[in-house]
Amino acid sequence: MNNTAICTQKVRLYPNLTMKKVLDDLCDYRRYCWNQGLALWNDMYDESLIMNDKKLRPNARKVRDELVANKEDWQYQLSSRCLQLAIFDLGVAWKNYLNQTLPDWGKPQFKYKKSNKQGFKTDNARLVGRALFLDKPRSINAD
Rank of each mutant, 00 (worst) to 15 (best):
residue 79 S to I: 04
residue 95 K to G: 04
residue 124 N to P: 11
residue 43 D to G: 06
residue 72 E to A: 10
residue 17 L to V: 06
residue 67 L to H: 10
residue 89 D to V: 03
residue 39 A to N: 12
residue 90 L to N: 08
residue 143 D to N: 09
residue 70 N to Y: 14
residue 7 C to S: 06
residue 32 Y to W: 09
residue 87 I to S: 04
residue 40 L to E: 06
residue 4 T to V: 06
residue 28 D to Q: 11
residue 43 D to Q: 14
residue 51 M to H: 12
residue 58 P to T: 07
residue 124 N to L: 03
residue 16 N to Q: 03
residue 64 R to D: 02
residue 23 L to A: 13
residue 95 K to W: 09
residue 15 P to I: 02
residue 28 D to W: 01
residue 123 D to G: 15
residue 41 W to M: 03
residue 26 L to W: 14
residue 17 L to E: 09
residue 89 D to C: 10
residue 79 S to P: 12
residue 50 I to A: 09
residue 29 Y to A: 09
residue 5 A to V: 13
residue 47 E to F: 15
residue 35 N to S: 04
residue 11 V to F: 14
residue 62 K to T: 03
residue 68 V to S: 11
residue 16 N to L: 04
residue 71 K to P: 06
residue 12 R to G: 11
residue 49 L to Q: 12
residue 122 T to E: 02
residue 137 P to M: 00
residue 100 Q to D: 01
residue 14 Y to A: 13
residue 76 Y to I: 07
residue 131 A to L: 14
residue 88 F to S: 15
residue 91 G to I: 05
residue 69 A to M: 08
residue 112 Y to G: 02
residue 28 D to A: 13
residue 78 L to F: 11
residue 138 R to N: 11
residue 73 D to I: 15
residue 94 W to H: 07
residue 143 D to Y: 12
residue 40 L to T: 01
residue 55 K to P: 03
residue 124 N to W: 07
residue 5 A to L: 00
residue 15 P to E: 05
residue 137 P to F: 02
residue 18 T to R: 00
residue 22 V to Q: 05
residue 4 T to D: 13
residue 74 W to T: 01
residue 28 D to M: 11
residue 11 V to W: 14
residue 79 S to Q: 07
residue 49 L to M: 13
residue 130 R to A: 06
residue 29 Y to F: 12
residue 50 I to P: 03
residue 42 N to D: 01
residue 139 S to Q: 10
residue 14 Y to T: 10
residue 101 T to L: 05
residue 136 K to P: 13
residue 125 A to V: 00
residue 11 V to E: 04
residue 108 P to K: 04
residue 90 L to E: 05
residue 89 D to P: 06
residue 21 K to R: 07
residue 128 V to M: 05
residue 39 A to C: 08
residue 42 N to F: 11
residue 27 C to H: 01
residue 37 G to L: 11
residue 29 Y to T: 02
residue 123 D to W: 15
residue 42 N to H: 11
residue 50 I to K: 07
residue 98 L to P: 08
residue 83 L to W: 05
residue 119 G to T: 00
residue 32 Y to F: 09
residue 32 Y to C: 07
residue 33 C to A: 06
residue 61 R to M: 08
residue 130 R to L: 03
residue 18 T to Y: 01
residue 58 P to W: 04
